[in-house]
Structure formats: structure tokens, C-alpha cells
């Protein structure tokens, strides 16, 4: 603790002396959280201005990759670790161990030394179940992934398309890990029969469930909790086999001209204070012992998180997506 405090004070001193700098920060964090993050950071470092570039995970990832040879970002703060792994493979990230990184749960830190990225919070898959629609259509609440292949759910499920949604890919890669490669595809073949449609975005299925457009939306817990808070008649269900997850993570973009300020920011993103901030929306954060229960979050979510192999997901992504598309895309008109 003391060490961190000291480091913070030191860094603060440096920052105070430094001229005001602007950092271009790419992020996929929900729009409504960004202002809070920046404000909290600026309490400690008023001289570093953050210029957010925010978009959905897919767009930001595409943008970063498109800018491969001419990076515009200084820092990435809040992008799926799977995406950061892609970038790491492209040599686009700067290896840097933030001050205090050793305090974080090792699961949330890149395995290289020094690490290329550090995690912030976990973003966990879940099932959103509309109780009103369930009753009306006589569809019981599922308890497991396997349940969803039951014919009773035919035409009741919406999930994100992994070819356009990070959440969708997270689901697919988790099933391949939970059920094994062959079992995973077999499971999805069964699930596909019950799916009404695949959406472009990861949060849409839960919002559609909240709006009663579907009984079940495969989405993520965070979105479910928000919809529930807004008064939608939904239950967030954690399937018994375990749930896939991804984390939002932070990294410095290689080649930034503002390395010092970027390091200052990344140092701050692993602090307890920052993690407390993450905890307002996410039940699982990188800093052990910080997490307070989040309202409307289902119990047992943390325990259900599978031991996710991010490397597997990143290195097999192109192959998995191709396979998925050839099985379910295009020829999947529901009738």
C-alpha cells in the first residue's frame, strides 16, 4: 500500500512539473462511464487531458488495426483483452509493467514479462430471461447452456453474431473450451436450431429480452443488470457449466510520443482507486478485495467464470469465425 502511495506521490510531483499534455485514449468502455473515469483520473493528474476515442469493441479494434503503421492512439484503456492480444501479436503494444501491477490478480495481467497489457474488470457472459414472456410462452427459465438446446426454446433465443460482436465470439470460444472443440460445435448445432436470429451487437440480445422481443437473450451480465435496474422484467441467469468472459484491459500503444504521460495514466489505471471505479459497473475487477457486490448482479457469477484461455481465443479466432460463418451464417433463415 505504502509503496503505491509513494509512487503516486512521486508521479504526482513529476506530473505537476510537466507541461499539460494531451493523451489520445482509445476505448470501448460504455459511454456513460467515460466521463467518470476521466474526472477521477484528473483529480490526481489535472495536467493530463484525456481525449477519448470511443466506439464498440469491433470498431475500435478495426480502427487500431487499420492504423497499424500509423498509430493515432497513445493509450488503450478499456478494450477487450482478446483484441489487445491481436494487437500484441502485431507488435503494436509497448511492454510496460505499471507501478503496482504485482497487486493485481495474475489472471488479469498479460503473461509476458514485462506485460503488454493489464486487465481492469471482467465482462461476463450471462443469459437474460424475460419472466413475463417466459410465462406467456410457457418457456421455463433455463439453468444451463445445455438447456438451451431443448426444443422448448425453439424460436425463443437471440444471441450476438460472433462475426460482428465481441460478446458473441466470447460465447463461442467459451463453449469450445467448456465442451471441447467437437462438443462445442455439436452444442452450437443444437443451439442454432432454437435461435431466432443473430444480432450485430453483444448488448442487443439482452435489450431485446428486456423489451420482450425475445424470451431469452444471450448477452453479458453487466447489460442485464442495467436493464433490470431500468425496470425490465428480466432475470440474469448464470448457466451451471460456467460462463465465458473477457476483460477490459489497458495498454500503451507502441510508438507513442507521450510515453511518460501514457505510463502515468496506465499506472493510475491499476490503482485501487481506479478499480473501485470499475466496480461501480462490473462485479469482477482486477484488484483483489476491491469488488463490492453490484446491484442486480446474479450471485455466483465470479465462481462460474471459466478458466479462460485468451491465447487460444486469439490464435484461433480467424479459424473459429470462418467455421462459424460456414455453419450458421447466411443459410440460416429462420422460418
Amino acid at each position: 500500500m505504502k509503496k503505491i502511495a509513494l509512487a503516486s506521490v512521486l508521479a504526482l510531483g513529476v506530473a505537476a512539473q510537466a507541461m499539460a499534455v494531451e493523451l489520445t485514449v482509445y476505448t470501448a468502455v460504455e459511454a456513460e462511464d467515460l466521463a467518470r473515469y476521466a474526472a477521477a483520473f484528473n483529480e490526481d493528474y489535472p495536467d493530463i487531458t484525456i481525449n477519448w476515442v470511443r466506439d464498440s469493441t469491433g470498431v475500435i479494434t478495426a480502427k487500431l488495426l487499420a492504423e497499424r503503421d500509423n498509430p493515432q492512439a497513445d493509450v488503450i484503456w478499456g478494450l477487450a483483452a482478446t483484441s489487445l492480444l491481436l494487437m500484441k501479436g502485431e507488435g503494436m503494444l509497448e511492454a510496460y509493467a505499471p507501478v503496482g501491477v504485482e497487486e493485481l490478480d495474475p489472471k488479469f495481467v498479460d503473461s509476458s514479462n514485462p506485460p503488454y497489457w493489464t486487465g481492469m474488470d471482467a465482462w461476463v457472459a450471462a443469459i437474460c430471461y424475460n419472466t413475463v414472456e417466459g410465462e406467456a410462452n410457457n418457456v421455463p427459465a433455463p439453468t444451463s447452456w445445455q438447456d438451451l438446446t431443448d426444443p422448448v426454446y425453439a424460436g425463443q433465443i437471440i444471441m450476438p453474431n460472433p462475426n460482428s460482436s465481441g460478446t458473441g465470439f466470447l460465447d463461442v470460444s467459451s463453449w469450445l473450451q467448456i465442451f471441447g472443440e467437437d462438443g462445442g460445435w455439436e452444442y452450437m448445432d443444437g443451439l442454432h436450431k432454437n435461435i431466432t436470429r443473430y444480432t450485430h451487437s453483444g448488448s442487443a440480445p439482452c435489450k431485446l429480452a428486456a423489451a420482450g422481443e425475445t424470451t431469452i437473450g444471450i448477452s453479458f451480465a453487466f447489460r442485464g443488470a442495467k436493464s433490470k435496474a431500468a425496470g425490465a422484467p428480466i432475470e440474469i441467469i448464470v448457466p451451471s457449466e460456467g460462463v465465458g468472459w473477457d476483460m477490459e484491459a489497458t495498454a500503451i500503444v507502441a510508438g507513442t510520443s507521450q510515453l511518460e504521460a501514457a505510463q502515468t495514466l496506465v499506472n493510475w489505471t491499476v490503482t485501487r482507486k481506479a478499480n473501485e471505479l470499475y466496480n461501480q459497473g462490473y462485479a469482477v475487477v482486477a484488484y483483489p478485495g476491491v469488488a463490492q457486490p453490484v446491484e442486480y448482479f446474479p450471485e455466483g457469477l465470479v465462481d462460474a467464470m471459466i478458466d479462460n484461455d485468451f491465447e487460444f481465443a486469439a490464435n484461433n479466432r480467424a479459424r473459429i469465425l470462418e467455421e462459424w460463418a460456414s455453419r450458421y451464417d447466411g443459410k440460416s433463415d429462420p422460418k
Partner: peptide, 11 residues
């Protein structure tokens, strides 16, 4: 086009 570029980063 959108799916290839944004979804899969396959420019």
C-alpha cells in the same frame, strides 16, 4: 462489408 471490416478486421 461492415462485418468483414468491423467485425473481423479483415480489410
Amino acid at each position: 462489408i461492415f462485418k468483414q471490416v468491423i467485425g473481423q478486421q479483415n480489410f
